[in-house]
């Protein structure tokens, strides 16, 4: 393993323009992510954190700046796989077909990809629903499929875009525990975007705080809580202290983000 970080983003900016007006989603955003690190990005809505993930995923280009991702020795592994906020599991594919989708696109033979997919479906506890279509599943189960689809693809970097944002509080907690458990087994590099500070502190090795309009990095907080973690850590005073410290830094940003919403162009950039 080299000394170079897994992800090195230097002075990235991203501007959306549609002719009439342009919106700066990211300005001079720099970030390093180490191999095997669980990095959480927290910020008010509209701070460009989703844009950054999409840039990492190769779904959109940067406007300026440099992004370097060190790929591993195994060239057949995909660089990134994304878990989307809106589940984004294909309604026209069964659970099994969804989870095997990335492998299928990479040309893995059918028998092999189905057995890998089956394994991941078991690990997220959906064995009973392996041949079900997403409309038969609850929101939490759909997102389990989304997570299994990403992990079955065995990416070098796992990108998660507010994956639990649309779920109710209890389901979210259950899935947080599941993500923790699976990550402890895998120790993959993860970039996890969330608007929940508690979630970021519970899951992450490091929390990056972003400001809105335009999105820049405001602060960084290492999370020294010991691994392996589980939900018990939320009951410790350190956990409370960390979340409160981050909230104090974030509060002003949230307030200014609330004031600036309603600007004609600022919509649609998460």
């Amino acid at each position: 393993m080299g000394i170079a970080p897994k992800i090195q983003a230097s002075h990235i900016s991203k501007v959306f323009s549609n002719g009439k007006c342009s919106v700066e989603a990211l300005r001079d955003f720099s970030l390093e992510v180490k191999e095997g690190e669980f990095l959480c990005i927290v910020g008010p809505s509209g701070c460009g954190k989703s844009s950054f993930l999409r840039i990492l995923a190769g779904l959109m280009p940067v406007s300026s700046g440099k992004l370097e991702i060190q790929s591993g020795e195994d060239q057949s592994r995909p660089l990134t796989s994304m878990v989307f906020q809106e589940y984004a599991v294909f309604p026209w594919k069964t659970v099994l077909e969804n989870v095997a989708f990335g492998l299928q696109m990479r040309g893995i033979p059918k028998a092999e990809r189905l057995s890998i997919a089956q394994g991941w479906i078991e690990r997220v506890g959906l064995s009973k629903f392996i041949h079900a279509y997403p409309h038969q599943l609850s929101g939490g189960m759909k997102q389990r499929v989304g997570i299994a689809r990403a992990l079955a693809n065995d990416p070098e970097i796992l990108l998660m875009d507010e994956p639990l944002g649309a779920l109710d509080a209890q389901t979210r907690t259950v899935l947080q525990e599941e993500i923790l458990r699976i990550w402890e087994e895998q120790r993959k590099t993860v970039v996890y975007v969330t608007h929940s500070i508690e979630e970021a502190v519970l899951l992450g090795d490091r929390v990056v705080l972003m400001t809105a309009h335009p999105g820049t990095k405001k602060a960084e907080f290492p999370i020294p809580l010991s691994r392996p973690r589980d939900l018990k850590v939320t009951a410790t005073p350190e956990f409370g202290k960390l979340t409160y410290t981050i909230w104090e830094a974030l509060r002003g940003e949230v307030l200014s983000a609330m004031e600036s919403t309603g600007e004609g162009c600022s919509k649609g950039i998460g």
Binding site: L59, P78, A88, V89
Partner: peptide
Amino acid sequence: IEPVYLEAGKNYGASGFRLFYHVILPGAL
């Protein structure tokens, strides 16, 4: 078609005809 399905398709390595067959066609049906 929900843009997020297209993003998911692309992120998981589908492009060209395979993106059409696996995402665009069933999404439009």
